[in-house]
C-alpha cells in the first residue's frame, strides 16, 4: 500500500465512490422503477467518475488525461442512455397497459406476486 495521495483527482475519486454507494442504496431499496432508473444513472455517473479519475492520473505525453478511459466513458454514457431509454419506455408501457387493463398502479405496499402465480403465456398466435 503506497502512501495516501490527496489531490483533486482523489477528491473526485472519493466523490465517485460516494455516488456509487448512494446510487446502490437507491437502486436496491426504492420500490418505484423510475426511482431505480434514476439511482442506476447515479451509480453510472459514479463509475464514470472513477474512470475519469484514473484518466486524470494517467495524464502524460502532453494530454490532460489518458484518452483511452475517457473514450470508454463516452461509450459508457451513450450505452447507459440507451439502457435508460429502454427502461423508461418499459415503465411507461407497463403503467399504460396496467391502467388500460383496469388495474390502477398497485399500491406500493403490496409486492406484485405475479411471478410465481401465472406468468403470461407463450408466443403470440402462431
Amino acid at each position: 500500500m503506497t502512501g495516501a495521495t490527496f489531490d483533486t483527482a482523489t477528491l473526485y475519486g472519493l466523490c465517485g465512490a460516494a455516488l456509487v454507494g448512494i446510487g446502490l442504496f437507491g437502486l436496491v431499496l426504492d420500490p418505484k422503477p423510475i426511482r431505480k432508473i434514476l439511482a442506476f444513472n447515479l451509480v453510472g455517473a459514479g463509475v464514470f467518475l472513477v474512470f475519469g479519475v484514473i484518466a486524470r492520473r494517467g495524464a502524460a505525453a502532453g494530454f490532460g488525461g489518458d484518452p483511452v478511459p475517457q473514450a470508454l466513458v463516452i461509450t459508457g454514457i451513450v450505452v447507459a442512455f440507451s439502457a435508460t431509454a429502454l427502461a423508461v419506455t418499459l415503465v411507461q408501457r407497463l403503467s399504460s397497459a396496467a391502467t388500460d387493463a383496469g388495474q390502477p398502479g398497485q399500491a406500493a405496499s403490496v409486492p406484485p406476486k405475479g411471478e410465481t402465480g401465472t406468468p403470461g403465456q407463450g408466443d403470440a398466435a402462431s
Binding site: P33, K36, V88, V91, G105, S109, P112
Partner: peptide, 13 residues
C-alpha cells in the same frame, strides 16, 4: 416518463 401518476407500479414492498 414523469407523466405517469405512480411513476410505475411498485416493484417491491
Amino acid at each position: 416518463a414523469r407523466g405517469l401518476a405512480s411513476a410505475g407500479d411498485a416493484m417491491n414492498a
